[in-house]
Design a binder for these strands. Sequence first.
DNA 1: GTAATTGCAAACGCTTTGCAGCGCC
DNA 2: GGCGCTGCAAAGCGTTTGCAATTAC
Lengths: 152, 152
Amino acid sequence: MKAKVDSEIKEHLRGRFAEFIKSKRMRQTPERFAILDKVFEQRVHFDIDELYRDIESEYRVCRATVYNTVELLCECNILRKHYLNENQAAYELSDDRHLHLICLNCGKVREVRDEGFNECFEKMKFRQFKASFISTNIYGLCSSCTRKMKKE
Amino acid sequence: MKAKVDSEIKEHLRGRFAEFIKSKRMRQTPERFAILDKVFEQRVHFDIDELYRDIESEYRVCRATVYNTVELLCECNILRKHYLNENQAAYELSDDRHLHLICLNCGKVREVRDEGFNECFEKMKFRQFKASFISTNIYGLCSSCTRKMKKE
DNA sequence: GTAATTGCAAACGCTTTGCAGCGCC
DNA sequence: GGCGCTGCAAAGCGTTTGCAATTAC
């Protein structure tokens, strides 16, 4: 439920992506930047297919390219990849810290911020492991499924 | 890295599974209990294919049945299903609380216990959501991949 | 110019499904 | 004996791959 990314941050990230691409001696294709722009328009975590359908309407690009570019955006640390369920990977902007509440019955995912939890993670240190980011999934029952269960 | 499940707990869980099956008016097939027994022998999180190959050597059973039974064991709250990466779901005994340290480079998964973190979760309450369990994945670089990176 | 990147389509791997026959209740 | 469960095989679906054509540098 976060507000759309503001244009200053957008510009900054676009610049970082451009730098990243250059540093790897890769090419700045229009497809890559078109995809990045659509990424900014996503309000919550999204999957490749959602992003693809969203882009497709105004820019001709194929799924494989979306996969490739999103992978690049993860390497560049603009996006992060999460595995919430069986179906497909979910992506989110890196600065968007929250937990996922996932209903075991209907599969609905809710994003929840919890500062205490974030602090708890910041403090953690691991031997022989350089942590980059945390992905926390809490499985349970959403309110409407709880209600449904009671009726039965 | 946990010790094998001791026989008392095993007996208890077998009983619970039997009860669960009866309560749903399902059948106590030998396949279901053979699979449960193999589940107890797993030392860390495992996937369906590992479990299947492990069973197959001494008991004729097909993949679909393993999928079905493991799903039942999750419903019965003996197992929990985690999504660590793209490839496949990972399963663990419910009483085995730990985080997963996942290397972004080689994909290796390490299990780590952290009591502070568990307590932090216990305290959390969510509006309109009945939490059942938490699955925490920490992505980063393992020590050997960190070393590899430095060399380049 | 030339090598990286794209679109397309086929391949891949995990999981689910449909179905005929078996066996638990 | 009936119907739930099994094995088998095929289908489904997200993702990856191979390749010829395109295009950024």
